[in-house]
């Protein structure tokens, strides 16, 4: 499914943010990447779909090495990878429906998209997905009229519109209150289950990760330090991942 081979990234030469990451994500379900702020979680997840250019290594996905793709072939590969962002990244001045349909821009020509001539099938699925994420009736509202939790639901629905075979989520709950964060994680876990796709989520909230993730990957200093089920994540391991002990009760 997805296999990272010796992936490295340095924004400044000589100070790597990611150090030789080798990782395989094939099972359906939620995989959480946890670690302290600034440890390279976001960089790792953004390297997978090349929003950030890796310095070295391979990104094997659906039989191709994404690290070597360019232009059209990269765009076509990206269509199969949905992405959810911390700041939602909706087009604020467009409606909820238009934001959902923007998930189809990799499939629909720019000219058709400009005239809003999306295939009826896409529009039908968009309405279905609005139902799934609990925003039925919001289709014609402008995105900037929504609350944070509602925006993130639109962000998730947009990603699912792509019919992805892999879903990435970069700190999807970090801008939300604890209750909404749980709801968003429930939604992501539900999508992983119902669609049978792997969801790779990046987060710093350990409790949330333990509650929803089938598998947890711990990062420290740009390297993988833990990989296993939530039950194996003990206090000693958490100290390795985050450093210090005072914060563990």
């Amino acid at each position: 499914m997805l296999k990272l081979n010796h992936l490295s990234k340095s924004y400044v030469a000589g100070t790597p943010v990611l150090r030789d990451i080798t990782l395989e994500v094939s099972e359906r379900g939620v995989t959480a990447i946890i670690g302290a702020s600034g440890t390279g979680k976001s960089t790792l997840i953004r390297c997978i779909n090349r929003l950030v250019e890796p310095t070295a290594g391979e990104i094997l996905f659906e039989g191709a090495d994404l690290a070597t793709l360019n232009g059209r072939s990269l765009r076509h590969a990206r269509r199969h990878i949905g992405m959810v962002f911390q700041e939602y990244n909706l087009v604020e001045r467009l409606t909820v429906m238009e934001n959902l349909l923007s998930g189809r821009l990799g499939y629909v020509s720019a000219w058709r998209a400009w005239r809003r001539k999306f295939p009826p099938e896409d529009i039908r699925r968009a309405y279905e997905l609005l139902d799934v994420v609990g925003l039925a009736g919001f289709a014609l509202q402008r995105a900037d009229a929504l609350s944070g939790g509602q925006r993130q639901r639109v962000g998730i629905a947009r990603a699912v519109m792509q019919e992805p075979t892999l879903l990435l989520a970069d700190e999807p709950t970090s801008s939300l209150d604890p209750k909404t964060a749980v709801e968003i994680m429930e939604l992501l876990a539900g999508i992983a289950r119902s669609r049978g796709i792997p969801v790779l989520v990046n987060m710093h909230d350990v409790e949330l990760a333990k509650r929803f993730a089938d598998r947890i990957i711990g990062m420290a200093g740009g390297a993988l330090v833990f990989d296993g089920p939530a039950a194996e994540l003990d206090d000693a391991m958490l100290t390795t991942i985050y450093g210090g002990q005072g914060w563990i009760q």
Binding site: R75, A77, M83, F85, V91, W114, R158
Partner: peptide, 27 residues
């Protein structure tokens, strides 16, 4: 213009012209 929404469209595989009309133009 905010780079975030443009990034989201890139991640969905949108070509340049669609990023212009859906990402930049509304902004």
């Amino acid at each position: 213009a905010q780079p975030g929404p443009i990034e989201a469209l890139s991640a969905a595989g949108a070509p340049w012209a669609s990023r212009m009309t859906f990402g930049y133009w509304p902004q």
